[in-house]
Design a binder for these strands. Structure first.
Lengths: 266, 266
DNA sequence: CGCCCGAAAAGTGTATACATTACAGCATAC
DNA sequence: GTATGCTGTAATGTATACACTTTTCGGGCG
């Protein structure tokens, strides 16, 4: 305890005026006093980051939407200071774009940026599976089998949000199996950007196709066929990208019709 | 962040006390709407980030050093607010570690993290050069030749700081030639982390050896020999890593003894 | 009818105030 | 003599105040 002091006073919609002094709850209190399990410090800032992130991924916040600080502050009942921190963090993840003196907006990745993100993913992930072949265990293969079965299950019952999450998680599971946290975090970033891109340039890509790719990749991993795994992964990512509506014309149109000026580059 | 338009004209020497002189922004009543390149000003936040970054890379700030907010604020004559933003940014680059309620410290990457960073670099950069073979132009090869010559020049005259910079820049140049800004930024992050690692686990690696590797890589690129280029890059990165003092014992010892020796052999 | 100008409103940028927490120094107990 | 508890100081976390910019809106004027 000691940290999660935040009472449920959140019921007051406009608790602004009062002395909200107490219950800063602040960050994790994890102090030297040997380790308390305490895995959910849930700093206020982090909570906001996560809320906005999932809101974007789940399409409740569309690209170009302006994120007004005070509004968010009211919703979470914190000061703008905290919201600003959260927005800064989000901007480093490229989910949000900060325009000086104008505000924060949900990012609208350009076509070029989309291309680059997928290119980097291809670079990283092909080598990832190639190397993974040499060190993957049977147990891990089994885990992957379970995962792809979950995927197909989610697809079968048209659980859209679960499906989306699982299809992206597949790549994260691979990264985690590689046992490299740095890589995992990098890829997590790229994947969330990919989600935003997929959302903007609505894919006609059937989830089933992606899922088939995943199965084939797992097959190759099981055979420890590095070359095949790498090639399959490359084709998989290329296929996802190819199925986005990334032709410049379409994007220009979208940009032109949109109230935001998004312009170009990053 | 970073008020791109605040000219730091208000550098009142005694600004701290009381109302910090008026308008930090001296305001320009004109409405110079866009069209102003405005690429230089660099907001105060950015300036601090860069100062601290180079200070770390250039070993003027050793790992473990505490960065007290007010102190930095006084030095740059800004409020803690700005410093805080800068520290947050630095922590996202992993150059600085934020400990809740305790402060900001220059990061001390662990051995495991070091290993992972180099592993990711290998994954990325081997594929990078492999692909680059297919699209590199003669002009670009010439540029690379110039670069490696600069490297050897810097080594010849024992220009340590220039040498270090150029050796790292080589990898950035490759990334830039690839024409992928996302990749370039990713790699820039990894490289600055690598610098910090190299600085912590003092390398006995001779710069000349690295430089030889670079020459060979350029040779392979010129021949458009993708396989060779990839292999050389992999070996190059492995060799840099191998030559760090990464055995766990050494690092524990170093940490235990608080290596405050700044004894840089310069 | 549209356009430009101005003033009010809204929102961001930075500084500062205040509460809270960590830490060092000292005193005290055992 | 070591360990433990108390207290003062310094530093961090959050909220708020205020300046400046952008935006919006309405009226005068072409």
């Amino acid at each position: 305890m000691s940290s999660a002091r935040t009472p449920e006073n959140m019921s007051t919609p406009r608790a602004r005026a009062g002395r909200a002094a107490v219950g800063p709850a602040a960050a994790s209190p994890r102090r030297t006093r040997h380790a308390l399990p305490e895995l959910v410090p849930a700093g206020a800032t982090q909570r906001i980051v996560e809320s906005i992130t999932t809101a974007i991924i789940e399409r409740r916040l569309m690209p170009g939407t302006k994120l007004v600080e005070q509004r968010i502050a009211d919703i979470f009942d914190v000061s703008r200071t905290i919201v600003r921190q959260a927005l800064n963090q989000l901007s480093r993840d490229r989910l949000v774009t900060l325009e000086p003196a104008r505000g924060a907006f949900v990012s609208s990745p350009t076509v070029e940026e989309a291309r680059q993100v997928f290119e980097v993913r291809a670079l990283l992930e092909t080598n990832l599976v190639r190397q993974l072949c040499a060190r993957i265990t049977d147990t891990q293969v089994t885990q992957l089998r379970t995962h792809v079965r979950d995927e197909s299950e989610a697809i079968r019952r048209t659980d859209v949000s679960g499906r989306t999450r699982l299809l992206a998680d597949f790549h994260m599971v691979l990264a985690r199996m590689f046992g490299n946290e740095v890589l995992a975090q990098l890829l997590a970033d790229l994947l969330s950007r990919s989600s935003l891109i997929a959302l903007m340039y609505q894919s006609s890509h059937s989830a089933g196709h992606s899922q088939d790719d995943h199965v084939q990749i797992v097959d190759a991993l099981e055979r420890r066929d590095a070359r095949a795994a790498a090639k399959l992964m490359e084709q998989h990512i290329a296929s996802v990208e190819r199925n986005l509506r990334l032709d410049p014309r379409a994007s220009n149109l979208a940009a032109a019709l949109r109230p935001l000026d998004d312009g170009d580059s990053r």
